[in-house]
Design a protein around this nucleic acid. Sequence first.
DNA 1: ACCTCCCGCCATGCT
DNA 2: AGCATGGCGGGAGGT
Length: 861
Amino acid sequence: MENEKENLFFEPHKRGLMKTPLKESTAANIVLTEIQPDFGPLTTPTKPKEISQGEPWTPTANLKMLISAVSPEIRNRDQKRGLFDGRNGLPEAKDCLHEHLSGDEYEKSQPSRKEKSLGLLCHKFLARYPNYPNPAVNNDICLDEVAEELNVERRRIYDIVNVLESLHMVSRLAKNRYTWHGRHNLHKTLGTLKTVGEENKYAEQIMMIKKREYEQEFDFSKTYSLEDHIMKSNSGHDGHADMCFVELPGVEFRAASVNSRKDKSLRVMSQKFVMLFLVSTPQIVSLEIAAKILIGEDHVEDLDKSKFKTKIRRLYDIANVLSSLNLIKKVHVTEERGRKPAFKWTGPEISPNPSGCGQVLPFPHSDLEAKRPSKDNCAKNLFSTRGKPNFTRHPSLIKLVKSIESDRRKINSAPSSPVKTSKAESTQNSAPFPSKMAQLAAICKMQLEEQSSEPSKKAKGQQERSGHCKPASPLRTLANAELELTAPPLIQPLGVVPLIPSPLSPAVPVILPQAPSGPSYAIYLQPAQAQTMTAPQGLSPTVCPAPSSKATRSKDPTDATTEKAASDAKSGAPTRPGSLQPVPDRPGAKNRDQESAGERGSKRASMLDDSGSKKKFKEDLKGLENVSATLFPSGYLIPLTQCSSLGAESILSSKENSSTLSPNHRIYSSPITGVIPVTSSELTAVNFPSFHVTPLKLMVSPTSVAAVGNSPALTSSHPVPGQNPSSAIVNFTLQHLGLISPSVQVSASPGAVPVSPRIEAVSVVPENVGTQQGRATRYDSPVPGQNQPSGQSVAVTGTPQPVPVTPKGSQSVAESFFRTPGGPVKPMGASCMDFDGANKTSVGTLFVPQRKLEVSTEDGH
DNA sequence: ACCTCCCGCCATGCT
DNA sequence: AGCATGGCGGGAGGT
């Protein structure tokens, strides 16, 4: 197991390389490996499924047990696998299954549709890689391999990868090969997307559409005009930009070039979709609106139903992936008309600028930087070369890029012939499975241990793992070590943590004392994930406000808090491992290097021009700068001391979520999934285009409320293990932080509680994301148990605890702070990045709808 | 009956 | 031509 862990942590892709060691771990793995070769899908195997079945579950019996416990379905799978294991011919195996199992049984054994969901698949996928991979290692992803390991058709992997690519979490390296960047670039990417979104006036478009709709309700004639209006406007200036794929500095190109094909595609749609969240005040976007806007861009004119339908389908695909990343959460917005599916942004708040202050990209750039105000400057100063500008790729540029890339690819691809590797890697299977196992285990663990007192330990363990650092592995590089070290501190709950004085000190041994406090784990895991994990089980910390709140329910907010925490956890979860970690790494440095920085730089430079349009950034940035400065002078701040960490987290979290927006926003912004923006203005603005300003009532379901309450701070603050922090505390904290408005308190009762005067009736019902289940662990999970009992480690990830309050912000914060490109030091940039948002805001404010808006989060289905 | 969205056909475009 | 990508929408599972 250890080996596996190491491998996993270090470099996911490496696993393939590492495989050998992995194999050792389990005989089964070996078998799989051997078997796989037979398949010999040099080309892309059409149906990995078969293959996969055999492979995946090699993991330890313990894990299996856990998993089985978790789900009967899983159990069935295992059974199947067992059958397969022996076999060389998959078909035969299947037959056997059929024979052995009665029709019903067989059917049962068949994974249900849910099990095949893209969200779950994405979770599995994500579990294979660390949120913050060590750049030094090559984190290559072989699509074939992954498809096999996950037992899905490659087509599905493309869906996931395309979305991840849109976020620059992966980049195409060559045919069949992608490089995993994890979340290193995420913040930056989001910043860029936000900027682009602003440029495109998405917020305005949203408002227009809403307005239009609103009007339509009573007046058809108007509708059209409005629509046309909107559409035109959109298509007009923005249209062009929209079509382009927004690239990030370090990561992007290949994909685009490769895919020059259709820039609209899932990738672009994904980016646009994300932009909508980033620019809208409430950060809640309904599918309907998103689809309209996306269609509008392409073809304003026809809102053809079929087209709309197709768009919606795609959006679901994208949403599933984003949900798995804990960036969004499914909610329902209820308006007069009825209830509409929508998604709420649960990711970090982002400043308009390319966030990456010191981030990742080393390439110098120009325009963007120049434009960028302080943030960028900060980044620049800190890292001269680094600030990468973001830009939208211009079609014209694409060709150039392509040629360049093609050359590069040729080079890259040659070596890569994926197939073989994959097989070889197949060995990895062990790894992958472990991850799965880990996830499952994590879930189980969470359930079992929710209440266990040791969360902190687990967390630590997980953290390390998650961090992709392999705990004991000799392999670790300093960087990793640093990461690990830093990460934990950040992550850990305020109270809990100990140790490492500062993230900066890399030398410090990673092991954190695991305090009994539960929260610690929360830290590791990003809230979002945590949630996810839980949710599936029904544990849903988030969901159940009541339990969490028990401590003190004095205010509903508490409950809300819980939810939030959960949601946060979810959101954070993906990141968990790394999220907190301060990864000093320079993301992708390696990869980049491989790619030829020079090319990129040049490309980018050219790109910059294109992107150059973003003057907005500057403005935004300015605002952000101020904010950031105010909030956190420097990333350094973050000595992980408990106290400090808490403060930082809270702050950060609040920042992120609320982002730049006005104070009001903060409240809303809270990562909490269900949370509804308390502030009436924001909500109204976004949601309701209506011009009339009317006070709205916010109806918050308990859950949602709970969510509100959850603030990262809380999480961090509460050392208490799994249990939710007392609601009172939470409330206090939140309020204190500004996450929640005092007025907002949430009531436990299911009924909605009027929050702000303005809001008349907004009810939020938390829905859990469908995928929640699998999410839990990522990378960490895979390794069941090195040091810790397998279960524990897993648990960390998945801790179901309801309240793990990891603040989203914490994650982001951590990232920003730690991420110093060069090293530990990167104060300014990070800080800058995180806090931005204040300035922007709100177009939406304009309209205050009289309508009532209800936002409900779905609990797990 | 509606919401989701899996599944896989088949177009597209690179090699 | 062969293969990698991925657009697309039928249609089915879930609720």
